[in-house]
Amino acid sequence: MENSRRSFLKLAGISAIGLGTKPVLDAFASSEAHGEKHGPEIFPNQEALTAKRWAMVIDTRKFESEADLDPIIEACNKIHNVPKFKEKRHEIDWIWVDEFKHVFTDLEHEFVDDRLKHLPFLVLCNHCENPACVRACPTKATFQREDGIVLMDFHRCIGCRFCMAACPYGSRSFNFRDPRPFIKEENKAFPTRMKGVVEKCNFCAERLAVGKMPACVEASNGAIVVGDLHDPDSEVRELLKNNYTIRRKTHLGAGPAIYYIV
């Protein structure tokens, strides 16, 4: 916040000097003439949901088949204008399902119990503590917020796809073509993407900012919980304390923030 205010003033100052236009100076002068000492400032919403470190716990015991997961995926796709392509090559996924052996490649074994073997698992961006994609990005188009959420700035992405090579979880998709014609119903409250940029789950940052829980959480009937990992009293901490949880490919040290209760 401090930073953005400073950069705002800097920018405003530079442009004022640069253009030297009277109206700009007038604008500054007039606000001072009214005796108000406000500079323009930007803040987070008051009702925004915040955390020191966001994390998600998925209780897979509450799921039985893909039918239980479809509404969750559908909710996400709809809200975020995720397109549906016929061509497999162009596929874009924010949250999707896969089998245990593919999701937990290093935990899989021949005699894994029947339930796990056939249960579909939700997969999404892990919002890693130590994200390889953020390290790889040459423009900071993908970045990690202080609260741990790994985001994409679609305005800045040059589409080099270095992040896709870097992600050890295969959580990123690329817009190989204009996605617009492939979105069934556009959600007018959320932008689509354009061709040539990478995208992925954004932990519903746009919803947290206005005080709403992520779409998948809302659609999950309590099977998915998000909360603050650094708050010992949070619901996620409660779940982690009382249940055995696993994460994907922990040996890589990326520190995924998505926990699975199996």
């Binding site: 061509e87 090559r89 162009h90 596929e91 589409g159 690329f174 190989f176 073509r177 204009d178 061709k195």
Partner: peptide, 8 residues
Amino acid sequence: GLGITGMS
């Protein structure tokens, strides 16, 4: 877009 290539 890069969809004309074989990449995925």
